[in-house]
Structure formats: C-alpha cells, structure tokens
Design a protein around this nucleic acid. Structure first.
Lengths: 186, 186
DNA sequence: CAACAAGTGGATGAGCTATCCGGATTGAGG
DNA sequence: CCTCAATCCGGATAGCTCATCCACTTGTTG
C-alpha cells in the first residue's frame, strides 16, 4: 500500500475540523453539509468517511482514548471509593463537555467498531473500580457492572434536557452526579 | 362549525390506533408509513395531523392527563417524603411503560402546546411535593424544581440505554430510581 | 333525491442522501 | 524538467422520503 497523498491528508484533517465544529454547535452531522462547509466535493467527503457515523466516530475517538488512559490512572489510586467516584466524575464531565461522546455512547454495538472497543475498555476499568469499592464496603451491593454505562448516559442526557447553556449544564451535571454518588454510597 | 363527519371520526381513531402500535414497537412515527399501515391516503393522515409531532402528542396526551390526576392524589397523601417518592415512581414507571412519554417529555417547549401545558402542571405538583418534603427536612436542600424533569428523563433514558427488554428495563428503572431517591433523601 | 359541504387519495414536486466516473493532481522515476 | 500512472477530486444525477394540492368521492341536510 502506497502512502497517502499529501492533499488527501490535508482534506482529511480539514473535514475532521469542520465536523468537530458542527458537532460542537449541536448540528447533526450531514456529509453533504460538511462538504459544503469545507469547500470540498461531496465525493471527497464520502470517500474519506463512508457514513456520518464513521465521521462521528473519528471525531469522538481521541476523547474516548483519553478516558481510557485516565481510567488506568484511576486504578492506581489508593482509596477505592475516591477512585471510583473520581472516575465517574471524569466520565460525566467528558460527556458534558463533548457532545460527540454523548451521541457515540448510546450507539448500537454492531456499528462503530473502534468505539465499541474503547467503550468496552472503559467499562472494564469501571467494573474493576466498582468491584474494588464494593469489596471495601463503600458501595451498595445491588449495583451491577451493566448499570455503569446507562447511569453515565442518563446523567449526561438529563444535563442536556436541563439546559442548553454550557455553564448551567456543568453545574447540573455536578449536582446530579453528587446525588447519584450519595445514592450509591453504602 | 358543523359537526365532524362520521367517517372522518372513524379514520381519526384508526390513525391513532396505528400510531399507538408504531410507537409501542419503537418505530419512528412517519406519516406516510402510518397512512400505508392504516390503508388510508397520505392526504387523509396529513389532514388530521399536520406533523408527526402533532400525532405523537395526541398519542401521549391520555397518559399525561393520567399523570396529572395521579399527581393530585399524591398531594393528598400525608407523609411528605412518601408522597414525593411515590410520585417520582409514577413518573418513571409511566415513561418506562410508554415510549411516547419519553419522546414527548424531552420535546422543545414551543411545539406541542397541549403537552407543554400538561407538563407544566405535572412539574407544578412535583415542585409542591418537593417543597413539602424539603420543608419537612426529608430532602436535601440543593435540589431545585427545575431538576425534576431532567432527572426523570435521565432515568428513563438510562433505562432505554440499558436494554430493549421490557422486564429488564423495569427492573433497571426501579434500581435507578431507588439510588436516586437515596441520594435525594436528607 | 338533489345539492352542497366535508373529506379522501394519490400524483407530484421539493429537498436530501449517496454513488459513480470523467477529469484534475500528485509525485516517483527517468 | 518531463512523463505517466496511481491517486484523488468534484459534482451531475439517480433514488428516496416528505408534505402539498386538487380532482374526485362520500356523507349530510332539507
């Protein structure tokens, strides 16, 4: 396989930049739209990203990867409860900050292979942290591993329902997570 | 204004029935689709319900009205905390049982006038119950009226993320609401 | 049963998505 | 610098869904 041409690489970056802007301003990702805004032909965009989902996935991947490494750091933390609570905080803050994560988090499992992979890793460390906290008697015993993702999604969804203003959202997210954590604490 | 014709009334009912079926099976409401399934012309459907949202609203309204009256009953309950908790339970169960409520609950405020009206009523009694419980020292003081709707939406959303199976959803909803209530309790 | 209002149905255009291929661009080799 | 093939670009266009509009049918009234 010959290396990618320079203009192609440039366009790829450009498309990604435009997509990031669109996602941040809440506009749904439409590839024709992206093409127009990027000043590129529709074909070019479709060549690089066959579906809107693929583009969204590429936009979201860096954030997901960051969460994965941050999760590994959390595992190194001593106090089981703090480690668990801090990690959940990270997950929520990530979703509140980045709309792409919200859309990707609730996506079906058979599309978006890379996302699924990363989500699995994130869930795995979440489960480890949960188990540790539970074994230490810090977390109620009726919380299941499979509840972690829904709860995180639920909180960020609630945040989006609450308001469109980023500051309000941030405060709301903190309130909601606090009450959730208080409810989870044994 | 002359009274509605009998066949028109029949069609109206039929459309509503079909729409209810579609909503229950999770299919997005598309008016052309409704028309085909109902064996009616597209024009007929569009005459009765100018937009999918209008149809959805009509489907959801009875449930919302039920919640309103149930809210008034809740206000009659003696113990402030139980009244509050029970009402939240009703709201969540409603959403878990009826997909229409979920879609309608998060809708923007300037469409769906009837829905907005009912939602306002529901929120008002929720706020009353919250205030009462707070004054009785049963609920933390940092929970705001405006948090009620997002929290309910968040829980039901989490439930939908968790699984597609109604039974699982029901169990999950109960778990989530329990932890939320524990977190809200003073 | 006539005459009119009310209601119906589907042909149709507007608008959006995604494909496909003729032509432009790139850069490796001479 | 020039050539040439591989690579990539762009937008015309086919296919699709949505919503409108109006010629026609049905119900109702006197």
């Amino acid at each position: 396989m010959t290396p990618q041409r320079k203009d192609a690489a440039r366009n790829w970056e450009h498309i990604l930049t435009v997509a990031r802007e669109l996602v941040d301003e809440g506009t749904p990702l439409q590839l024709n739209d992206v093409a127009r805004r990027a000043g590129l032909g529709v074909g070019t965009v479709y060549r690089h990203f066959p579906t809107p989902e693929a583009l969204l996935e590429t936009v979201a991947t860096p954030c997901l990867e960051a969460l994965v490494t941050q999760g590994e750091e959390a595992l190194a933390h001593d106090d089981p409860w703090t480690a668990f609570a801090d990690y959940l905080t990270l997950l929520v803050e990530g979703q509140v900050t980045d709309p792409a994560l919200v859309k990707v988090a609730a996506a079906a499992h058979d599309v978006l292979p890379r996302t699924t992979e990363l989500k699995t890793q994130i869930l795995a460390t979440g489960a480890k942290l949960l188990a540790r906290a539970r074994d230490a008697g810090a977390v109620r015993t009726d919380v299941q591993d499979a509840d972690l993702v829904p709860l995180m999604c639920g909180i960020s969804y609630a945040t989006y329902v609450h308001s469109t203003d980023p500051t309000h959202r941030h405060h709301a997210a903190r309130r909601y997570l606090d009450t959730l954590l208080r409810g989870l604490h044994a």
